[in-house]
Structures are given as structure tokens and as C-alpha cells.
Design a protein around this nucleic acid. Sequence first.
DNA 1: CATGAATGAGCTTTCATTCAT
DNA 2: TATGAATGAAAGCTCATTCAT
Lengths: 197, 197, 197, 197
Amino acid sequence: MRKKDGKKEIAIVEAAIQVIAKDGYHHAKVHKIAEIAGIAVGSIYSYYDDKLNILLSIFDNVWKKLYTDLAELNENPGLNPVEKLDRLFDLIFDVFETNQPLAMVFVQEQNALVRDHKDEFTPYFEKYIALGEAIVSEGKDTGVFRSDLNISAFRTFYLAGVSALLHLWLDKPEAMQLPEIRVQAKQYAKVGILNSK
Amino acid sequence: MRKKDGKKEIAIVEAAIQVIAKDGYHHAKVHKIAEIAGIAVGSIYSYYDDKLNILLSIFDNVWKKLYTDLAELNENPGLNPVEKLDRLFDLIFDVFETNQPLAMVFVQEQNALVRDHKDEFTPYFEKYIALGEAIVSEGKDTGVFRSDLNISAFRTFYLAGVSALLHLWLDKPEAMQLPEIRVQAKQYAKVGILNSK
Amino acid sequence: MRKKDGKKEIAIVEAAIQVIAKDGYHHAKVHKIAEIAGIAVGSIYSYYDDKLNILLSIFDNVWKKLYTDLAELNENPGLNPVEKLDRLFDLIFDVFETNQPLAMVFVQEQNALVRDHKDEFTPYFEKYIALGEAIVSEGKDTGVFRSDLNISAFRTFYLAGVSALLHLWLDKPEAMQLPEIRVQAKQYAKVGILNSK
Amino acid sequence: MRKKDGKKEIAIVEAAIQVIAKDGYHHAKVHKIAEIAGIAVGSIYSYYDDKLNILLSIFDNVWKKLYTDLAELNENPGLNPVEKLDRLFDLIFDVFETNQPLAMVFVQEQNALVRDHKDEFTPYFEKYIALGEAIVSEGKDTGVFRSDLNISAFRTFYLAGVSALLHLWLDKPEAMQLPEIRVQAKQYAKVGILNSK
DNA sequence: CATGAATGAGCTTTCATTCAT
DNA sequence: TATGAATGAAAGCTCATTCAT
């Protein structure tokens, strides 16, 4: 039972993001989430089946938004694959730039969650991956991207890289500005690190 | 009396790697580790202070080897920065290629472990990072790498990328060969994905 | 929701007194305490931090009562030091006369508990001692008690003596009546055992 | 199997006294005893059946000596009951004056040990009690002691009192000299605390 | 729907004792 | 006899979940 939209649901998810960001999912206590959400423990179970489903819901929200935005972007006929890839990176940074705790949860919990609960994980993730790979594929087909590019490996590599950069930024936000990181990430993808001159 | 050779200690670590790779650290039961190691639970505690220290020890072994090998490689005067970076990637793949469960543990647990036990984490990790950054820095100084390269961001990005590729491979070893993945990863780093022609 | 009245807390302490009286603190199992209290193990931990704190709480209750009663008695201007000392003995016997298991715990566990957890031990104990010594001191000052009386040694001696008599009584309640023991104890203190005639 | 007289046995017992005095019997670790005794853990079990029997042996030694000395003293026809009682007190203080850790063990562990292992406790204890009571009884018969004296209560009271004084002394040896304590204890017994003049 | 007291399965760790050498 | 590595039963405590109110 995953309900949506109510004030309480949102309060629970937001509280959960805070607590999980700080303590990690396994150490996150349901009591603490309830306390921060300003409700009783028992009430959480009126909105979510269990602790796990709160986390699944967080990732559902994130991937749903990422997928929706990417789909919309992809509809834009005026963009070539390189520009699309550029925007794809931006979309990710945009989502997390204004919500650091959410970024932390995303970065820390996705792997284990997919490992342990593949079947329950949000379908938007798969859809997002497919769409992303389609964009890259289009780039290969039109000759913008290298013909020997392994699409699956590529998206894995860059998604993890971006995630790690987010993590780096979260760890010491003052050490490196996010705009700077965006630029770097995009360059890695496109031209690598060799000096072209 | 029975003498302590290193046999038990190794058996424990290997059993732990198996169990943690499969279930994740938090779900890994000490009893199960003991059972697989073929010893009694209590024996584990004469080799390791607690469950946590087994995991820390695993990472200590890995980073110690990675650091040592990288240091040796770095001593080789016949290698330029690009070649060193190439070998650096190889070293990582080499370590995990023959030990998939270890790779799994590495990929799945490092983040949370560093987050929760920064102070107890192996010092070889920091030394490895420093050495890796030094190599990249050398490449910048000699003009082989782009002058606007952010070293810290770069190593974060690529380490995570490689780790994710390992994960991808572990998930479906038959879908993509490791040699293929190596080539891709190295190319990402050097020339990006754009078609140079 | 079910409201916390004091019922459970009392049930836990009473069960603990029974079990500890019988098995001693170290052999007292938390499960057994819970079972006798008629609740689940976990419930104990919402009333007490741990097993130790149950014991500390028992002594807090006892010394709080002993101190409060002694303080009240001491306020009575109509009593001289000898009478006060007499009543002081009575207060102790009164507390334990109706609660043999409590007496057992008191007699058996106080020493080790103070040794191992001096800092957490109830402050009422110190206050009680101070007040008791004040009464004896008053007796010395007014010339009723011997002038060479070492107050600290005296209260140590007699407190232990009374405690031991309680123990003797608990061991074989039928062998010696408590009233008889009271009389003896008081006489020891005042006139010793020599035949005054 | 309780053996005697060998160097190792003595080393074990002495080590045990130290450790138990410091940590209490339940927290005393057999490994630590072995370490201090300068032997291997396993060797302890060649001399004592188990940890419990080491403690029982300590008390056997103590009560055997106390009983033997008291018996010898009692044989002396030149002593009247008051003098015998005086010497009885001295014997106790003498044993512990030169061995504080032993005093600590005596004071802290006797009660619980008798409670939990009455049947295995040294027979010298009972014999000692009987002899002590005989001396007091003699005093009653000859009219030196009060005729209404309850012998059993008396010895319980004073033994505990003396034990507690030892404890007080052990806690802060510098605060009160043992000779001073001896005098006080003897006076309590004989003339109480009232000012006779 | 909301509450929060109550539940109890399940886990890590300890340490007296054993026994192969 | 001596050794000390190995054993494994046993117990305190946690915390997600339930359900009486």
C-alpha cells in the first residue's frame, strides 16, 4: 500500500530522507523518522507497509522525475545527441542540487537496494536507463559518438561517476562548487581528459 | 598444543567475503561465516575483535595491495602518465577479475564503511588516492592531460566508474567480458566518447 | 493506545527482586524477570536502560525510603540520641520485615554493586550515612556516647551487623524471631555484651 | 581434585586472590589468573577442577587457619572468655592485616559463595562457628556475658561487623589505622557505646 | 485514522573449559 | 604435566511491527 500526495506521506518521506541521509538505511530508526515527521510511529504504517517501502518510495519519486524530465527533453526535436547528453547530466545535478539529503540517500542506498529488492524497485529506473541508452544509441548511429562505444558500459560508468561526484560534493560542499563539477563531468564524457591540442 | 598458523585467519576472511558478497555486511551472520570457514563462532573472535573488523581487514588487504602495486608501477621511469593511468586501471581490474566475491564486497560496502567508520578505515586508501592524484598531476604538468582538469573530481569520477563497471560485470559476467570493459574504461578516460574523426 | 501507568514498572521491580533474591544478580536472567513480571523481555527495556539499572533502582527505592524516614525521625525534637539510634535500627528492620526477598537483595548485592558502580549508586545512600553519623555525633557531643567513639567505624560496624542479622533471619526465619533480633541488636550497640551487674 | 602444597598451586591461588580482589569473582577471568600466575590457562585445570574450586580453596585455607588458631587459643587454660573473645578478634585482624587482597575476597565473596555452594563450602567454617559460639557460651555460663545474650545472633552480628571494618579499612587504608579499628571493635562487643560514667 | 506501549525473534559477543600436541 | 588454540552454549539487548484504545 503506497499512498500519495497527502501531507503526512510527504512529511514521512522528507523525514525519512533526512534520517537515512544521516545514518544510512540500516541504522535509520523508524521512531526517529516518526518523531521528525511529527507523528506517531504507528501512523507511518498507515501510509507505508514497512520501513523498506519508504525507501522504495523515495527512489520511485526520484526516478519518476528523472525519467519524466528526460522523456520530455528527448521529445525536443531541436536537440542533437550531444546536447541531449549534456542536458541529461544537468537533469541529474538539478534534482540533487537543491536537496542534499536526497542526494545522499541516492548515492548511498541505491546499490544495496537494487541488490536486495530488485523486483520491488521502481520501474522508472529501467525506463530511464532504456531511454538514456536510446539517446546514446542515436548518437552512435548518427556518427557523433564513437562506433565502438559499448552503450551499456557507458551509461553504467557515467551514472556512477556522476553519483560519486555528487557524493564528493556532499562531503565537502565548500571544496568544490557544483557548477564546476558539472562542467568537468560533461567534458569527461565528451572529450576525455587528454589535451586535444 | 595446536599452533596458530595463518590458515584460520585466511579461512575466516574468505568465508566472510563470500557471505558479505551474497548478503551484504548487515545481513551477514557471524555464525554463517564461521560455518563456511569450518570453525566455531568463538574462534573468529580470537582473530578479529568483532564483525566490523573482519570487513575492515578485507578492505585493508585490498587497498594495501592496490597501493603497493601502484607504488611499484609509479617507480618505473619508463612510463609516461598516460601509460601509468592505463596500468592503474589494469591493476584494479586484475585484483578483482579473479575474485568476484571480493569485487562485490568492494563495490557494495566501501561507501557505507567509510561513512560509518572513517577513522578505522585502512590508511592505504588515503595513500592510494594521493598517489593516484600525483600521477594525474604529473600528467597535467607535462601537458599530456587537459590543464583545466580537476584532479580530485577526476579520480572520484573514474574510480566510481570502474567500480560500477565491475558491478555490471558481476551482475551478468556472461553479458560483457572483462577485457572489453577494460578497453572501454580506458578510452572514456583518455579520449571520451566523441568520434575524433 | 495503551497508557503507561506505573503497573508494569512495579511488576518489573518486584519480579527482579524475586529473581535476584533467589539467584543473585549475576545469575538472574532478564527473560526470567520478564516472565515473572508477566510481560515481554523487550518491555523491560522501555522502563529500564538495562539489567543493571533495575538493580540500581531497587537500591534507590530502599535508600530513599530509609533516608526519608530517618530524616523525619531526626526532626522530632523530643528524641535524644539514644532513642534516635533505637528508632534508626527499627526503621531498617521495618523495611525488610515485610519483604524478605528485598532484604535478601539488600544483604547480598549492596557491596558488589557499590564496588562496581559507585558513581551510579543512589545518592540517598550517602545522605543516609551522613545523617546517621550526625545522630551519633550528637550523642557524642552531649556526652551520652563514649567520647573515644570513632563514628565512621561505628556506623560501618553496626550497619553490617544489622544486615547480617537480617540475613540470618532470612536463612531460617523460624529459628529466630525478628523482634528478638531487634532487641539484641539494640543492646549490642548500647551496652555491649558484658554483664553490667 | 584439590591438590596442595605445590609451587604452582600456590601461584594460582595467589594470582586468583589478586584478580578476584580487584574484579570480583564473576568478573575475574581465568586467563588473567593464569597470566599472573605465570602459567598457561590449561594448567590451572590440572590443579583445580574449575574456577569455582579455586575460590572454594581460598576460603578453605582461610577458615582452616582461623579455626586452627582459634582451637589452639581455646586450649589455653589461662584465658577467661573475655580474653578469648579479645584474641578471637585479633586472630581475624591478624590474618588479613598482611594480606589486603585476601581480605577483600573474604569480605566480598563469602556471602554469595555460601549461598550458591553451601554444600561445597569448607567444613572449617562450621567448625569455626561452633567453636566461637562455645567460647561465648562459656562466657554466658560463667556469668561474664549477659544471660539474655543470643549466641547465634551475637556471632553473626560481630563477624559481619568485623568484616565490614576490614572493608572500610581496605577502601581507604590511610583514613583509619587497623590498630585503632581493633580497639573499637573490641569495645563495641564488650561495653557497647554508652558512656559508662 | 491516530496513538505509542508492548512485543519477541534474532543477533553479536563472552569466556570457562577442553584436548590435540 | 604443560600448553593455548579452539570450542559453543548462553545471555543481554535492539527495533521493526502490531494492535488495543
